[in-house]
Design a protein around this nucleic acid. Sequence first.
DNA 1: TCAATAGTGTCTATTAGACAGTATACC
DNA 2: GGTATACTGTCTAATAGACACTATTGA
Lengths: 299, 299
Amino acid sequence: MRNEVIRNKQGLTEKEFLKGYDADIYKKPSLTVDMLIFTVMDEEEENYRKLPEKTLKILLVKRGDHPYLGKWALPGGFVAVEESLDEAAFRVLRAETNIDDIYMEQLYTWGDVDRDPRTRVISSSYMALVDNSSLKVKAGNDEEDARWFEVQYNLLEEKKAAAERGYIYEQLVEIKLRNESDELSARIKITENPDGSVCREIIESEGIAFDHGKFIQYAIDRLRNKIEYTNLAFNLMPELFTLTELQQVYEVILGRELLAAAFRRKIASMVIETNQFTKDAGHRPSKLFKYNSAWRRDI
Amino acid sequence: MRNEVIRNKQGLTEKEFLKGYDADIYKKPSLTVDMLIFTVMDEEEENYRKLPEKTLKILLVKRGDHPYLGKWALPGGFVAVEESLDEAAFRVLRAETNIDDIYMEQLYTWGDVDRDPRTRVISSSYMALVDNSSLKVKAGNDEEDARWFEVQYNLLEEKKAAAERGYIYEQLVEIKLRNESDELSARIKITENPDGSVCREIIESEGIAFDHGKFIQYAIDRLRNKIEYTNLAFNLMPELFTLTELQQVYEVILGRELLAAAFRRKIASMVIETNQFTKDAGHRPSKLFKYNSAWRRDI
DNA sequence: TCAATAGTGTCTATTAGACAGTATACC
DNA sequence: GGTATACTGTCTAATAGACACTATTGA
């Protein structure tokens, strides 16, 4: 519908205008994507009767160059001019994992002026959820050291303070990331203003590069929120699973215990029972379920 | 905690590395912010007894140059290197409105390669909510023609189709934007994949510049979602309001009628009654309420 | 046998939806 | 008085939380 013969104030047609357009007269920020790749893994359990505990893991990459040399960062990369933002995210994801059909979602775009000491860099964060059983992280690709870290989310402090037109709510959250060899942490202050808008600020960061601690806190917030009303959790599950395993995944993301009876009622319509069972469990076997792909939240 | 004496593989310290860093060796996309400024206004009502209807409005700007010359676009601007993303959004917002303390929230960053015919432009969209009574849109600033458009959101079609691993849900949504003089529209196809990820695609766009139709559809989605569990609606209300007015705001955003009794129960804890009443209404006066600034959703 | 998990039944409290019914100014 | 809105009471259905109780395996 755009009419090519319309002329602007300089008397140019659109064709002429576009030909003369110079995108580089102003200095531009650089743009990156950073991936938050989550999975859930079983921890070793020595007692043959007990079920293994599940933990939430995130994939981090050890920085091999300045800045933050030796610190751990989210896998990421610069966005090229010939690829879309989503394509850039997929490219980064493929560089780290061997799977193609991975759940991916854009989270937030971080634009503080000083967030990267090299130059002005704005970063769009994406979250990916992968099923650990079908996953193989590409080890040592382009000399990178990629490792899974156990994620812990601790609410350290909650504050409510009177302000001009209402109350300001502040949370101090600690993110702990653990490995066999490393323990990283970040403290993030989350401020909720009277109008409902939210700000995040890094108070302290140990071993985590850039402002990536904020990214992780934000992602967990989103995970916790979306798991309640979407099928998101099933992206972390294998083809067949027990309801207890599914409940454990919910619990490890939400950071609290759930009651089995209520949980089973709630997710009943999202799963289909098979006639297979777990074996050699040291206790009563458990029925295996699969995702009910026809499920959809009612609106 | 970053140690300046660590050297990278080229033997450079961080200082030396940063000195030699050239951010411009690769071509970069440009970055803009686009603002979705919403308000709710009363429509004229000739019957003295009847309450005026409320409508959701969005502020658009008539493009004065190529591309999309003469079409209507969201107010926006390029992000400069010395300002943060939020600062850029505030700058754009201040250019259009006279208010300082406006609710603003980042929505989504749009990164399709061909979304701007000038050059590669990635756009972060922000939503702002303003109370119509305290608002004055800056008219004719830098020769811009800024106007309010009534927003309508119509679900035209819903489809569920079997796919490889589950079902694909498709929605066809029509956005209609109306003015005394103009009527614009866009059709957006929203695809929800089996894993829960969502894609948006513009099918048709009449009078709306760029891919801004998608931005508007996304923003309304977010509005509808967040109004259910946050205090967001009160950013659209004046200091004092009746519960019927508040309900009308909820209805115009949600696009459906609500039952008064249930609505009042639901928002009871979010408001404080005053001892003032409406007057000259042609019917029973209504008690005026104000926002309960101590309200917070329980977690 | 028993440790540990699997799975169900049911009571209670809370909340959303529906709708009838009463109240009240202003023309 | 009549119109249009303001506001409340209550029945019902659906849902979440709590918890007790039964079931079942492998060592």
